[in-house]
Amino acid sequence: MSYLRAVFTILWKDVLLELHTREVISSMLFFSILVVVVFNFAFDLRGEELLRYAPGVLWIAFIFAGVLGLNRSFLLEKEEGGIIGLMLSPVERSAIYSGKVLSNLVFMIIMEVITGVVFFFLYDFLPLYRNLPSLVFILFLGTLGFSVIGTLFSGITVNTKAREILLPLLLFPILVPVIIAAVSATGIVMRGEGLEEASKWLKLLVAFDILFFSLSIAVFEYVLEE
């Protein structure tokens, strides 16, 4: 089986599993919408304030929900013994990693887009659609960075005693550059400035994604090795 096919088989397996159980996306989505609603009471999001806080509120919602989803997806594997099946399958460990990164990415993007739509209706927030392609591009780069590190670390934390709490503790400090870059770039685009204004943040995101993806490919075999 070629490498790429192995990656997409694992992605497809996760998609099928999700279609049957509907556990990961729905819990992430419900949580991220709740965060958006709760932030409304915390910051009284209206007018000028809304435009200032919207990028931060959205990304915080995405990241919190993403942690929830990561915990869920690896736990499902572990509980049902799926991880053993994956490890026994004749594919490289890094292919398992890449497949998982993709499935986490896809699930999160779906959750983020729906949260974005809900956000638009709840706040009548037009800037969200001011420059939609740019926004989706930033969403993709930021979420990929999250998924790259998140998948690596949830492979670690799922094998520890305190898994649910350890994942964010490990993940958030490492993700600081992604959070800063994604929130800043999103803010720039929402204010109606062009994507080139955010170019340095995009470069940072691309660099982060590539660097840590290649690093994780190299070290993931040590995470799953038993």
Partner: peptide, 21 residues
């Protein structure tokens, strides 16, 4: 193995954190 992975990722992350901040 786990802490080695964190030790490597963590150290490489520091210059990027510095740049972004």
């Amino acid at each position: 193995r786990f802490s080695a992975v964190i030790g490597i990722v963590g150290f490489i992350d520091v210059p990027i954190v510095r740049l972004s901040t």
